[in-house]
Simulated assay, not measured.
Amino acid sequence: MVEYLRALDLALDEQLATALLFGIRRETLGFMRGVTEAEYAAAQYLHAEADKDTLRTLADSLFTGITLDAIGQAVLNRRVRGSCLVASAGRTSERDALPQAADYLLNLEGVSTTVVFGFIDDSIHLSARTRNTHVHIGEVIEEAFDDDGSAGGHREMAGGVVPLGPFTPSEADETVEGIVSEAVYSRAFDALQEWC
């Protein structure tokens, strides 16, 4: 986005610069994960116009109570096979909780690849991360879930959405949610088995 702004010589206001800089910071885990030269250059360009107080406020407010609950469920529901971890965050209304849980669980000793999924409205949402240089997590997630929804991503991070249609569990229907969850665990581990 920053490259487009610069190439088209569009004006950059404080609000846009702040939002873009926060997005770069968030997606690179504070410039610690897979940062490219283009991202460093974009951050440098945005820094002069960004509101530093707003950036600090955003950095200090990483998640809501709903996000914390979803991360907690992912921690409790984690399953590990070798260096791979798959976890259910359960039912949540905050999509952003899933990548945060995937990032957090990637810090577990011995784990180099994570897949976290959750039920949001009438779909399963997935977020995946890897530090294993032999795994292209975008291709793994696409192979496992793209036939039933939309899934894919980059070498180190990926995501997807699988509509449940008539199989959408109600909040009170733990049996259907359990059956669907078992299918997701199975698909994810099957797709990852070569690298676990």
Rank of each mutant, 00 (worst) to 15 (best):
residue 102 A to E: 02
residue 87 A to L: 03
residue 154 H to E: 09
residue 126 L to F: 08
residue 153 G to F: 05
residue 192 L to N: 11
residue 21 L to D: 08
residue 107 N to K: 15
residue 60 D to M: 13
residue 25 R to N: 14
residue 9 D to Y: 06
residue 27 E to C: 01
residue 67 T to S: 15
residue 183 A to C: 09
residue 27 E to D: 15
residue 9 D to H: 11
residue 52 K to L: 12
residue 114 T to L: 03
residue 113 T to G: 01
residue 159 G to M: 01
residue 95 R to C: 03
residue 11 A to F: 05
residue 114 T to H: 03
residue 188 A to C: 01
residue 185 Y to K: 02
residue 25 R to W: 12
residue 102 A to D: 00
residue 63 F to I: 06
residue 180 V to I: 15
residue 172 A to F: 07
residue 70 A to Y: 09
residue 87 A to I: 00
residue 7 A to T: 12
residue 3 E to I: 05
residue 25 R to V: 05
residue 156 E to A: 06
residue 88 S to T: 14
residue 145 F to M: 03
residue 96 D to A: 15
residue 109 E to C: 04
residue 133 T to Q: 10
residue 192 L to K: 07
residue 30 G to R: 02
residue 39 E to M: 08
residue 34 G to Q: 06
residue 187 R to E: 10
residue 190 D to E: 04
residue 39 E to P: 00
residue 11 A to R: 07
residue 162 V to N: 02
residue 77 N to R: 14
residue 160 G to M: 12
residue 155 R to I: 12
residue 45 Y to M: 06
residue 1 M to F: 06
residue 160 G to P: 07
residue 154 H to D: 05
residue 123 S to K: 15
residue 51 D to Y: 01
residue 128 A to Y: 01
residue 83 S to M: 08
residue 34 G to M: 04
residue 59 A to S: 13
residue 136 H to E: 03
residue 152 G to M: 06
residue 80 V to F: 00
residue 186 S to M: 08
residue 195 W to T: 01
residue 131 R to I: 11
residue 164 L to T: 07
residue 90 G to W: 13
residue 121 D to E: 15
residue 29 L to W: 14
residue 110 G to W: 09
residue 171 E to A: 12
residue 170 S to P: 02
residue 52 K to F: 13
residue 164 L to S: 05
residue 154 H to V: 03
residue 120 I to F: 04
residue 83 S to C: 14
residue 119 F to K: 01
residue 138 G to C: 06
residue 92 T to V: 14
residue 55 L to T: 08
residue 156 E to Q: 08
residue 91 R to F: 04
residue 80 V to R: 15
residue 150 S to C: 02
residue 133 T to R: 10
residue 41 A to T: 08
residue 182 E to T: 10
residue 16 L to F: 03
residue 195 W to M: 07
residue 95 R to M: 11
residue 80 V to Q: 15
residue 6 R to L: 13
residue 194 E to T: 09
residue 171 E to I: 09
residue 35 V to A: 03
residue 172 A to E: 14
residue 183 A to S: 13
residue 17 A to G: 10
residue 58 L to W: 15
residue 188 A to Y: 03
residue 159 G to L: 07
residue 47 H to E: 05
residue 152 G to R: 06
